[in-house]
């Protein structure tokens, strides 16, 4: 390693790769910690409600718990297909 490289590293040093990998894996692991273990259940129940109205697949609903500043943010993403068809039962309420 030349002195030039020493002061102006060109490639990302291994530590910064490590940091990125850590942030990803920890975000994932923390979501499984006590208190947030309701997420899978929430996802299931949401799915049950949503499919009453729109035909969506299981993997089209994503629930995650993140952080924004000091607050925890519960993020729910529902992917609605372009040609979303209302679920038949609710298309024409009896």
């Amino acid at each position: 390693m030349s002195l030039f490289d020493y002061f102006f590293p060109r490639k990302p040093a291994s530590a910064s790769v490590a940091k990125e990998r850590l942030q990803i894996v920890l975000a994932h692991e923390r979501s499984g910690r006590d208190g947030t273990d309701f997420l899978p259940r929430l996802q299931k129940e949401l799915l049950a409600v949503v499919t009453k109205y729109v035909a969506v697949e299981e993997d089209m609903i994503r629930v995650s718990l993140g952080k924004a500043g000091n607050a925890s943010v519960l993020e729910i993403n529902v992917e609605v297909p372009h040609t979303a068809k209302p679920t038949p039962a609710h298309a024409a309420p009896a």
Partner: peptide, 16 residues
């Protein structure tokens, strides 16, 4: 070793 980028820095660890 932190300076060489081989180890996480204080700031990295604190932040994570």
């Amino acid at each position: 070793r932190v300076k060489k980028g081989e180890m996480l820095s204080v700031e990295d660890v604190k932040e994570i």
